[in-house]
Simulated assay, not measured.
Amino acid sequence: MKNSGNHFIAFLFCSLSVFAQNKIDRKAVVSRHNVKVNVVDTLASLSVGNGSFAFTVDAMGLQTFPDHYKNGIPLGTQSDWGWDSFSNENNYRFEETLEDYDQNGRKVSYSVQPKTPERAAKATEYFRSNPHRLQLGNLGFELYKKNGAKVKPEDITIIDQTLNLWTGKIESLFKVEGVPVTVETVSHQEEDVVGVRIKSDLIEREQLKIRLRIPYPTGEWMDTGTKWEGNQNYKSSLSQKDKHEAVISHKMDSIHYQIGLAWEGKAEISEESSHYFVLQP
């Protein structure tokens, strides 16, 4: 029995030694699972981020068609710090949402959703929806055809998009009326920063612009970040630092944040309407 055991142990050590010599090519293992997208699929949104920040894009590499994607995987920009609360004008108290239940002879209070009285129902709805996470901004293309009409999702052709799982980069290729557009999308690994490189003849033809829109939060159970107008007294102000940088300050109920923009080459930025800005190369 001892000899058999010794032979078995020797064989085991030998196997481990051979295994250790065959190092895993981790890049190859990870890269063979790269994600590919070839159509405008509302359930095939891709994201870049760093664990505390995420930027989700469509098949064009930016957030160009948020309304089209809202019933699939929405195109959003979110960060751990991006929370807001509506003003509590009616002075609701959390205690108004509680109801006592008997648990083995003792009373335990739970926050419930009563239909009556009306104030309790409204108090519950207020605390359910506050604080709420924000869609911080929507960064996308404004694409135009030769005749000046805006490009729709069905006008996009020859889509070839890849999420490189090893580098974290999204590389997108698509065509508008036969003209190719290539886009590289990345996220900073520590900061809330997105970098984009765009190449296309559409830029020279003035058929491609970059759009930034800031949506209103709805407080609804599912907020897809596609509400562009509201009655809230929110403000977005544009200040241009120089020919290559600009800052947009956004003030809401309980939060004030800034969006910095920086670009290479000649471009002009303008405010199209409230919370709607366009960068024209």
Rank of each mutant, 00 (worst) to 15 (best):
Q189M: 10
E264D: 00
H7Q: 07
P114R: 07
R26D: 04
D25Y: 07
K150W: 00
N104W: 13
E177V: 15
K199Q: 07
L165I: 11
K70G: 01
Q78N: 03
Q258Y: 08
E118G: 03
F8K: 15
A246T: 10
N38W: 02
T77I: 13
D242H: 01
Y69F: 12
V186R: 09
H244M: 11
L212P: 00
Y234V: 14
V35I: 15
F127W: 05
S273Y: 04
N6R: 13
I156L: 04
R211G: 09
G105D: 01
E204Y: 00
N50V: 14
I159F: 04
V181S: 06
H250G: 12
K23D: 08
R32L: 06
V39I: 15
K70H: 11
A20Q: 06
T185P: 05
K199S: 10
V35K: 14
L75S: 07
K145I: 15
S187Y: 00
E206P: 12
V151T: 07
F53I: 14
E229P: 01
Y257S: 03
A121L: 10
Q232V: 13
H256P: 00
H132Y: 03
K209E: 02
V183L: 03
D253S: 09
I24V: 13
I214A: 11
Q78I: 13
G230H: 04
S237H: 06
L173F: 11
F8R: 14
N22M: 07
S172H: 05
